[in-house]
């Protein structure tokens, strides 16, 4: 897969001057050497807490901010040297709650921004209807409602629609589901995945929602205090936290088999030593297995097979996977000590 977005060693320090006479200069180091690559047709998540530097990175990639150091390319075009080229091929959403004219309807807003990209006539009309339909905006009445009367969910959908108006191959979306109602965020998440996996678009999203990133991103970079502290696929990142993952299976054994026998059977069948079985008086057993990270799916399936073959009824099976949150906490606390 070719790399279509690349950031290389980006640095940015904001200087803010306050007061006309006594100039006080405030400096914030927002980025301290950010590098990453995004492959075509994937959803790339830039995950980090507030103030980590996500928006700063997004602005640099969308030609809206000049880094102090470092470079970035979108489909080979340098964001500093060829901003016009970059602007043609990216669709951007910077904030879900702002960015449109209040006294125009959703339809009129989209049409204006479409016209600024040289689209017009029936083609543009058709495109707007399609997009509004795709984003569920038509059923919400956003075509005739003024933007000022939109709910946050509608605003976010409209923002994504604008990013898509010229059918760009690259989407750069800054916190596209921030603060949205569940229906709107689900709609947007599904669409993002669909755009990448079915239409081959490349999507860079930022988020501070670990769960969301875990669900939709193919590749994740965790950013904190202006630095990327970890990068990889979600399973790869999880492997960084712990090498062993607990699996818990609850099943009903009744009088079919004793606690000790069951433990031996499972150990032998799986070839794993770290198995603990506990049975209560009613015949319900709790089996805990510690497996090497990455093996959990195989082991669960195999364990369930064995139990079923013995006639045990499975009540629950849980893989106690670490969440991205665990990853984040481990990485940031490690940095502090």
């Amino acid at each position: 897969m070719p790399t279509v977005i690349e950031a290389k060693d980006l640095y940015k320090t904001y200087t803010e001057k306050r007061g006309l006479i006594h100039r006080k200069v405030k400096r914030v180091e927002a980025l301290k050497g950010v590098s990453f690559k995004v492959e075509k047709g994937t959803v790339f998540g830039l995950l980090g807490p507030n103030g980590a530097g996500k928006t700063t990175t997004v602005k640099i990639l969308s030609t809206l901010l000049i880094p102090d150091k470092g470079r970035a390319w979108i489909m080979g075009y340098d964001v500093l040297e060829e901003p016009e080229k970059v602007r043609e091929i990216i669709g951007v959403s910077l904030s879900v709650e702002r960015g449109f004219f209040w006294k125009l309807t959703g339809y009129e807003n989209l049409k204006y921004f479409g016209m600024l990209r040289g689209l017009s006539g029936r083609e543009l009309d058709k495109r707007i209807r399609e997009l509004m339909d795709l984003l569920g905006l038509l059923e919400l009445g956003a075509d005739t409602k003024f933007y000022e009367d939109f709910s946050l969910g509608m605003k976010a959908r409209l923002s994504l629609a604008r990013a898509l108006i010229h059918d760009p191959p690259i989407l750069i979306l800054d916190e596209p589901t921030l603060g949205l109602d569940p229906a709107s965020s689900r709609h947007i998440r599904n669409l993002i995945v669909q755009l990448a996996h079915e239409e081959g678009k490349t999507v860079l999203i930022t988020s501070h929602n670990m769960w969301e990133v875990e669900v939709i991103c193919d590749y994740v970079a965790i950013i904190n205090k202006g630095r990327i502290i970890a990068m990889g696929t979600v399973p790869e990142l999880k492997r960084m936290v712990s090498r062993e993952i607990p699996i818990e299976i609850t099943s009903y054994a009744g009088k079919l088999v004793s606690e000790d026998d069951l433990e031996k059977i499972v150990k032998d069948a799986l070839g794993i030593e770290r198995v603990a079985v506990k049975m209560d008086k009613q015949g319900e057993v709790r089996i805990r297995i510690l497996v090497e990270n990455g093996m959990e799916d195989n082991v669960v399936n195999k364990a369930l097979e064995i139990l079923r073959a013995r006639g045990l009824r499975i009540l629950e099976a849980r893989v106690m996977e670490p969440s991205l949150e665990d990853v984040f906490i481990k990485l940031t606390s490690g940095a502090r000590s």
Binding site: S62, E84, R87, V92, F100, F113, L116
Partner: peptide, 17 residues
């Protein structure tokens, strides 16, 4: 309105618009 960045990132750019 928060529209300025979108105008800047549009192909014609802020000056022309």
């Amino acid at each position: 309105l928060g529209v300025l960045p979108y105008i800047m990132a549009s192909p014609p750019g802020l000056r022309r618009v």
